[in-house]
């Protein structure tokens, strides 16, 4: 148990939980009940399965807990122990079906990746979303990496990183995927990802040297190679810090995001006060409970609009996708936003 015995019943995690804030304790009792209270009930803890997949794994509770209990880990342990014996949500069933059929968490619409034998030392790992849904993110990321002077390629044959399966509690399927990816990725010195969920999984699950693109562009290549068009007008921009980036990969990525944005001319940052609040996409919430994920995203979009932002940016294609479902404001993934201001050779 990740220290759940240390709980003092202070309710900090419940108050911090964005899902509780959105749908109320009566519907989702919060991290404490699922991760700390329920396991104590012995065999009857299975009753918690009803709500155990309502958590978005944003790790805000981990930050809020004064006893520093590994609540997200405890939640995942709970899910993993329940998983073999419960009927999963329809959305999760589709996800598992896709994994079995295609090795991806979503239905593929295109083939990704060129070479089977590496020519470059750095692999770009697009992840399911950037390779199949938010394709622009992949293209812009590759463009930025190239502009920054990095030799990067997209290996073929990559499957889902397994992060959604870890979140679901399906350890068996996850291991199969990891084996497949590891065979390809271990030939490279470095992996760069767009999706922070993939970054965390590649580092923690696979033990690979993986960096998120915001880290790579600021810490490895730097942005000197990039040339920007002067901004014709200032865009009022709200930032959404993806949970798996700002809490998963590390708080230093918030600084990195701002460093990157400060390079781009014509941007006026708008402070919304809820930059680090979860948008609801993560932790299999979007696939299992799209309505809840939608409401959480709408709340963020509302707040950005109220603050006068015209665009929201997130350094995560998955968050970007979820925020975009709401409508009402333009959502651009970070690399997409930066690329839109990039001056390519021959451009004036």
């Amino acid at each position: 148990m990740p220290g759940t015995d240390r709980c003092l019943k202070c309710s900090s995690c419940v108050r911090a939980c964005p899902v509780v804030a959105e749908i109320g304790e009566m519907t989702f009792p919060g991290p404490r009940t699922v991760a700390v209270d329920a396991p104590r009930f012995g065999p009857s803890r299975v009753a918690i399965a009803e709500v155990a997949w309502l958590c978005s794994m944003c790790e805000r509770c981990l930050e809020a807990c004064p006893s520093r209990i590994g609540l997200p880990k405890a939640m995942l342990d709970m899910r993993a122990s329940l998983f073999p014996n419960v009927r999963v949500r329809p959305g999760h069933e589709r996800l598992l079906g896709n994994i079995d059929l295609y090795g991806l968490s979503i239905e593929p619409v295109r083939k990704v990746g060129g070479e089977t034998m590496p020519k470059a030392k750095i692999a770009y790992f697009p992840g399911c979303i950037a390779s199949q849904r938010e394709v622009e993110t992949m293209e812009c990321s590759l463009g930025l990496l190239k502009a920054a002077g990095a030799e990067v390629e997209v290996p073929s044959g990559l499957v889902c990183c397994g992060s959604p399966l870890v979140k679901l509690g399906d350890e068996r399927r996850c291991e199969r995927l990891m084996d497949a990816n590891l065979k390809i990725l271990e030939r490279y010195d470095q992996v760069v990802t767009s999706c922070p969920g993939c970054t965390v999984q590649l580092v923690e699950g696979y033990g690979l040297e993986a960096l998120h693109i915001t880290e790579f562009l600021t810490e490895v290549t730097g942005t000197k190679g990039m040339r920007f068009r002067p901004g014709s007008e200032n865009i009022r921009l709200a930032v959404h810090h993806a949970c798996h980036l700002s809490r998963g990969v590390g708080p230093h990525t918030k600084e990195r995001t701002y460093e990157l944005l400060s390079e781009v001319p014509g941007i006026e940052l708008v402070s919304t006060g809820d930059e680090t609040v979860c948008c609801g996409a993560g932790g299999s919430l979007l696939s299992g409970y799209p309505d809840v994920a939608g409401r959480m995203a709408a709340r963020k979009v509302d707040s950005a609009i109220f603050c006068g932002a015209k665009i929201i940016t997130a350094a995560c294609p998955f968050c970007a996708m979820n925020l975009r479902r709401t409508g009402g404001i333009e959502v651009m993934e970070l690399t997409q936003l930066i690329s839109s201001r990039l001056r390519f050779p021959g451009q004036h």
Binding site: R6, C10, P66, S67, G248, V249, G250, P251, T253
Partner: peptide, 25 residues
């Protein structure tokens, strides 16, 4: 220090330590 998956070092002349929360440890 640990920042998520990474390590950060802070070098300073002096340190003031205020991390003593008795409830949380």
């Amino acid at each position: 220090c640990r920042s998520g998956l990474r390590r950060v070092q802070v070098r300073a002349a002096m340190m003031l330590f205020c991390g003593g929360n008795a409830v949380g440890g």
